[in-house]
């Protein structure tokens, strides 16, 4: 048995308090929700539809935006360019601004009288009150998680390995797809899961852009406002359970178990 110094015991005590702080409210909510009420809630079409909407809009936002975010991460990891720090700061902006404010900004960006809104209207798509608007709001607040994780992943890939591929006759695009991307995949997958999770849990930005159709965080808020804590609780528990199952499944399918640790350096050799 390892002997702990008093200071280490003090640190462990502080850590335990923090864990308790996180676990207690969740545990309390779970304990106060009966399996019967959970089952009844799960049968409600509105709830099931809302959870499904939340999952697919966040998934779509993650996958669509990843197509441009991953190459941007590569640029940030590999290239030096003027005002790179400013670009990095801009990428982190969605994390630091209030999400309701972000929602207002997005609404101004996608509403019918804007360029994007007009382009959408031309093809019969109205972003406001539409899953496409929800996905945009989710992507706005969650994309920094993907970019930062992928950038760390690419930075951890040895440049020599990429140079070796170039000397073996590979074009820069082949080097990217066969060397850099596979070697950074753990961080990229970690970033994708974080972005997906963050998108699913978004409330502030989405409620401004699209109150309807209702994603689950909005539904929970509405039930709480209209019927009180007791009616909001089963939806919350159900949503948490489904989210957890989803993330554990993704975690098990991912090539590395530490998917929630962004920024880990990949061992290169």
């Amino acid at each position: 048995m390892k002997n702990y110094q008093p200071f280490q015991l003090f640190l462990i005590l502080l850590g335990a308090l923090i864990l308790l702080f996180i676990i207690s409210p969740l545990l309390g909510m779970f304990l106060k929700t009966s399996p019967a009420s959970l089952f009844e809630t799960a049968k409600e079409a509105e709830v099931a539809g809302s959870i499904w909407l939340t999952i697919w809009t966040s998934m779509a936002a993650t996958l669509v935006f990843a197509l441009a975010a991953i190459p941007l991460s590569y640029l940030l990891a590999r290239k030096s360019f003027p005002m790179k720090k400013l670009v990095t700061g801009i990428i982190d902006l969605p994390v630091v601004i209030p999400h309701s404010a972000a929602g207002i900004a997005i609404l101004g960006f996608v509403s019918r009288d804007t360029v994007l809104g007009k382009m959408g209207s031309a093809v019969g798509l109205n972003f406001v009150g539409n899953p496409a608007g929800i996905a945009i709001a989710m992507a706005f607040v969650s994309i920094p998680y993907l970019i930062n994780a992928a950038r760390d992943g690419f930075a951890g890939v040895s440049e020599r390995t990429e140079k070796a591929a170039l000397t073996l006759g590979a074009s820069p695009s082949r080097v990217f797809f066969t060397i850099s991307l596979p070697l950074a995949r753990r961080n990229i997958i970690s970033g994708l899961i974080l972005m997906f999770a963050r998108g699913m849990s978004e409330f502030g930005a989405v409620i401004v852009v699209a109150y309807h159709p209702m994603i689950t965080p909005v539904l929970i808020y509405e039930r709480f406002g209209a019927f009180g804590l007791k009616y909001a609780r089963p939806v919350s528990v159900l949503f948490i359970l489904i989210s957890l199952t989803l993330f554990i499944a993704l975690r098990m399918l991912s090539p590395d178990n530490r998917i929630f640790t962004s920024g880990q350096k990949k061992k290169d050799q």
């Binding site: 040895s158 020599r160 390995t161 140079k163 070796a164 591929a165 170039l166 000397t167 073996l168 006759g169 590979a170 074009s171 060397i179 596979p182 070697l183 061992k267 290169d268 050799q269």
Partner: peptide, 18 residues
């Protein structure tokens, strides 16, 4: 680079680990 007909072996080998 790929048109030079040069083969370079790096000091740390730079073998593709994946």
């Amino acid at each position: 680079i790929q048109k030079r007909g040069i083969g370079l072996v790096f000091q740390d080998y730079a073998i593709f680990p994946h």
